[in-house]
Amino acid sequence: MGQIIVMTSGKGGVGKTTSSAAFATGFALRGHKTVVIDFDVGLRNLDLIMGCERRVVFDFINVINGEARLSQALIKDKRIENLYILPTSQTRDKDALTKDGVEKVMEELRKEFEFIVCDSPAGIEKGALMALYFADQAIIVTNPEVSSVRDSDRVLGMLAARSRRAELGLEPVTEHLLLTRYDPERVVRGEMLNVEDVLDILAIPLLGIIPESQAVLRASNVGVPVILDDVSTAGQAYSDAVGRFLGEKIEHRFIKPQKRGLFAWLRGNSA
């Protein structure tokens, strides 16, 4: 039976889709058959980040409504074996997601895939609730910034009270913190919350720290998940986080500012 993982945050723009793409790709690279699903009905974007936007014919909502079979809607990644994308509808709205409909698709996917990564929309309404409802594990994507931390706490409250596991009184959803857009230089200057601050406040285990990196925008420009850019700090950090998720012991990196050469220092570069 496959594991359902939700990538959620409450706040928008913190890196849920980037992280969903990276984790799904990371699982597949390590040989696990994985599907990543876009739950942001009406604002489809996972297809762009995964670089398969021109191959979408049927979508998640078509499958829920019985207008297409699951196998027709699943897009097989062209680069990586074992990786599939289930895009969402660009024209309908969140009401198209029904609990029964989503459950049927999830049950079918569970039989075929080891990991089912659900890319949640922002907010705490129907789309976000449906994305987290069936989850076994949750990755809370948080920026070291007050509104993001507060929203993450709200989402943790939802996981504890309104997920399927909570409603049925099963083992609670396993929670992981993924701290993204971390800028160690600003942390050193006291301009940004540090890892310990965020961990103190949210009190959930740390899965990884993704440093602020220009590679993320570059990757989304060309539709290649940033984890495949293995020279970038963000790519390496995602790779580490995937390893940790799978139980490997990997130390956290990119917490301290990287040493810069004399030339970079003279120019006053901060990249």
């Binding site: 910034e145 007050v146 301009e191 540090n194 601050d197």
Partner: peptide, 22 residues
């Protein structure tokens, strides 16, 4: 005074309140 310190204090106060209500 470091702005990150303000951020942490403000968050702790507001979230203690919100969690209490939850």
């Amino acid at each position: 005074l470091s702005s990150a310190v303000h951020a942490k204090e403000r968050l702790q106060i507001v979230m203690a309140h919100e969690r209490a209500g939850r």
